[in-house]
Amino acid sequence: MTKRSSWSLPYFIFLVLFVVLPLLLIAGYALTDANGHFTLSNLGAFFTEPKIVNSFLVSIEVALENTIICILLGYPVAYILARRKSGNSAVVALMFILPMWINALMRTVATAEIFSWLGIGLGKGTLLFGMAYDYLPFMIYPIYNVLSKMSPSYREAAQDLGANSVTVFFKVTLPLSMPGIVSGVLMVFMPTVSTFAVSEILTNNTIMLFGSVIQEQFFNMMWNQGAALSLMMLIIIGITTLFTGKREEIAEGGLV
């Protein structure tokens, strides 16, 4: 071992202790039953148990909806911020980031309180509101990043070739900002699928998201079942990230 590579030893130990070992534990628990015998039934439950299948589908649906809401709200904000000359754009950016300085759980509880004070019943609408509120900055930032680095000459070239501002946006600005959108989607979609506290607080436990199911199983000491679902979740996230990661390399400029 050369002198320099020995510097990485602490990180290596850290990785083994806090990443590799827990992952092995999860896999181990997922593939065994309560008595420690090898089984695939825990994993099978992901596909067969109606409650789990349903919650997974609902989670995907909510995550998709939340992602779309975040794109629709976040893109215009990022666009306006990036087009601003300078100065007060930092203030506007801060306005969106400032809520993140408050603990997410506290924020969510407070949001729920506001809804009940306003007399709005908790349900899917409030869940989507809370999620968009939580995840919007993660969408704005990568898009803003790409847009603000984009040379204005592309826009000018398109105008020069006869494109009005609407065409310029759809033919040039939007396609060129795709890497930012992809980064934003990665940062919003994945965490929303596995979130649990938000859905519990903002729907009063009427909507069970996948994260809540896992949490519930651990809560009820069903370690093996919980671990199996976590493993499935991990595999799905891994596949999606690989899939989007490739496109990222070509386009560059994203956050991830």
């Binding site: 592309y154 070239a157 398109a158 020069d160 070739l161 006869g162 494109a163 040039v172």
Partner: peptide
């Protein structure tokens, strides 16, 4: 600019990176 029958060759080319050569020219 888009209503002027003039075209510009930009200093840094400003070719659209998301389009190939053909689509750039056909834009």
């Amino acid at each position: 600019p888009y209503k002027r029958p003039l075209n510009t060759v930009f200093q840094r080319y400003a070719l659209f990176p998301h389009l190939d050569v053909y689509d750039n020219i056909a834009f």
